[in-house]
Structure formats: C-alpha cells, structure tokens
C-alpha cells in the first residue's frame, strides 16, 4: 500500500507544525501551505489524499479553496477536512456545501484528528 499524502493548510505556522508532527508520526507524507492560493498550487502538484484546511486565511479563504478543488476532476478522490475556529452552524453548513467531508473546530484534540484521518483513509 502506498503512503497516504496529507496537505496541511493554515496561516498559523505553529498549528501547521503540530499537525505536521501528528501526521508524520502516523507515517503519512505531508506538505504545507500558508494561504489559499498556495494551497491550490500545492494541491495540484502534490495530489494529496486528504487536505486539512483552515478557513480564515489571507487572500483566498478555505471555503473558496474547497470549492475550487471540488471543481478539479483530477482531485476527485481528495478528501477535505476543515479545521477552523469558525464554529457556528452556518459556517459548518457553508463548509459542507463547499464540498468538504468533515468539519472540525479549533482547538482540536490530537487523537480525534488522527482518528478522523485514519478512518477517512481506511473507509474512503
């Protein structure tokens, strides 16, 4: 089985650092992006299996990133997990409507994030 690829997108380097550690520890291959546009560029080249996506970022926000990715046929298999401090019901709805599979709210629990990613990779 090939190594799963995770793209971590957040404008907070410290959060990216933490998630990167957690993902690498599970043996996944990771890439980082610090804003929306960078995320889109990375996604196109890296072809991740899962994108862990923040919402409030300079330039393109996470919702828009998700919509763009959903429009790209070559990224059809790619799963999107929102990880954001925006926690209202409406935000969640927007997130799911933009094409995400899961919506997690910051601050998150390390084990929960890891479990969600594992399950997503295992059961699709």
């Amino acid at each position: 089985m090939r190594t799963a690829k995770i793209l971590i997108v957040d404008d907070e380097p410290n959060i990216v650092l933490a998630i990167e550690f957690l993902m690498q520890r599970e043996g996944y291959k990771t890439e980082k992006a610090f804003d929306g546009l960078q995320a889109l560029e990375m996604a196109a080249g890296f072809m991740p299996d899962i994108i862990i996506l923040d919402v409030m970022m300079p330039g393109l926000n996470g919702f828009d990133v998700s919509r763009h990715i959903r429009r790209a046929p070559e990224l059809e298999h790619c799963k999107i997990i929102f990880l954001t401090a925006k926690g209202t019901q409406r935000d969640k709805q927007t997130g799911y409507d933009s094409g995400a599979e899961t919506y997690l709210i910051k601050p998150f629990d390390n084990d929960e994030l890891v479990t969600v990613v594992q399950e997503m990779l295992a059961y699709g």
Binding site: E12, N14, I15, I19, F21, L22, A85, K106, N110
Partner: peptide, 18 residues
C-alpha cells in the same frame, strides 16, 4: 476575539499534548 483566542489555544493544546 473568540477566533483570535482560539488560534493560540489551538497551538498550545496540540503541542503540549504532543
């Protein structure tokens, strides 16, 4: 404010747990 507080708390919680 909530959002601005959540961001550092997120880093702290995750990293300290690590």
């Amino acid at each position: 404010v909530t959002h601005e507080l959540r961001t550092p708390v997120t880093s702290i919680k995750s990293l300290s747990k690590i």
